[in-house]
Design a protein around this nucleic acid. Structure first.
Lengths: 234, 234
DNA sequence: AGTTGTGAAGCCCTTCACAGCA
DNA sequence: TGCTGTGAAGGGCTTCACAACT
């Protein structure tokens, strides 16, 4: 059931304040902005400055950071290095996480080769496909393995996060298999709903859906500019 | 400023009721589910049935559809074909929209070859890159053109939506160029914030961010299971 | 009998505005 | 003086629960 957003069935622990989902979703963006600030020689940043770099407003940023028992200095701002450390800790990025990628088609290929993962706390530890003609291919230094080997590899590598980049029809069985092997977080690129137990988290990325949402805004914009006399509702 | 979600600076028109953003974001998922239902021979579906197929609850679905001046039949359900028609109209998918893709690297390649776009109301009409060594390459029947030709092609093809799949450092100048050519919707895969005028809509997809959000949940789960005395909520 | 459409309640998130602190 | 941290207010979305309708 746990589909995109909205789920927090467990109690917070001392180490993990019960962060609002909206906040969790923004922390990675703050982290990216902080790394950039750090790279460009900023040791300290104000909420206003960081908020701009992350594309949010400063009150929201401060509220978000306050959930982390924040440690800004009034009158000064936040220590960049310290805040990076804190957010990485909260997100659990200190242990470099191994990720399995299933489905080495068009998109899977690109994801396997995406350099951005490595620099941001992840590495693709194994590639799988069901198609024997793809098994054995080497991508970015990794050999594609048959999906039958999944259980073995997941155990060996201590994998708990997987990416599904298969066609839609294969996604549910692949998810079931992953879960049976102990995977508890899935990033799903297949255009379909996955049903999974409550303890498994799923996030979905659907490229066509993103375009359709933009299409709506295009449509609305063109409709409105075409109707000069339109009057406010309500 | 208009970054992800939350923006509706314009007035609603008669044709376009002022849909909540959350609703707009779900309509494409309903549409996908409806197409699948249609393909499997369902002419009519209840809110419960469609909600399951789309991974939401039925009250939310009904509320969403009510914004479209819905036309379900009490005691029966919704006519699948009619609802598809209506949602496609609202999303502006009746006119097949041409999309420009900028940046034909790893990810850009995959997006250019992604078959899912064509079947869901879009086609990639042109590919661009700044790297001369990539210009001229043919991908999926389209030739990669140099970004200097962008203005010309955007005008010719009537493009208003673009996808940015460049490295982060190139994304802002590319966005500026696109906007100067008349593009008003951008799907940004580069890991950075774009600043754009109010009339331009941006949606961002950042693969590392999705994984980091999952990482948080993994971290939380492992922290909690490590504390034996923790009790389940509600 | 069965299902939609929808006021009303509740929850979560955002934003405001300022007290508190360096 | 300047910026953070936060109670309180406000807004939007979800969920409930039932009236309306076929």
């Amino acid at each position: 059931m746990s589909q995109q957003r909205n789920e927090r069935p467990l109690k917070p622990s001392a180490d993990f304040p019960d962060l609002p989902d909206a906040t969790v979703a923004r922390l990675p963006e703050y982290l990216r902005a902080l790394h950039e600030l750090s790279r460009t020689g900023n040791d300290v940043v104000s909420s206003e400055g960081l908020a701009n770099a992350a594309g949010v407003n400063s009150a929201k940023l401060r509220k978000d950071l306050s959930y982390l028992r924040s440690n800004g200095t009034r009158g000064v701002g936040y220590d960049v290095a310290q805040l990076i450390e804190k957010i990485e800790h909260v997100l659990g990025l200190n242990q470099h996480r191994a990720v399995a990628l299933v489905g080495v088609g068009n998109l899977g290929h690109a994801l396997a080769g995406y350099a951005g993962f490595g620099t941001r706390g992840f590495h693709i530890a194994a590639l799988f496909d069901a198609d024997p003609s793809r098994v054995g291919e080497e991508i970015n230094g990794l050999v594609v393995r048959h999906i039958d080997e999944l259980a073995e590899v997941v155990a060996e590598e201590g994998i708990s996060i997987a990416v599904i980049a298969t066609p839609a029809f294969a996604a549910q069985p692949v998810a079931d298999l992953l879960i049976s092997c102990g995977v508890t977080s899935i990033l799903n690129f297949a255009p379909c709903v996955l049903s999974v137990p409550d303890n498994v988290d799923v996030r979905k990325v659907d490229l066509a859906i993103e375009l359709q949402i933009l299409s709506f805004h295009e449509h609305r914009k063109s409709t409105l500019t075409a109707l000069p006399g339109t009057v406010v509702g309500s």
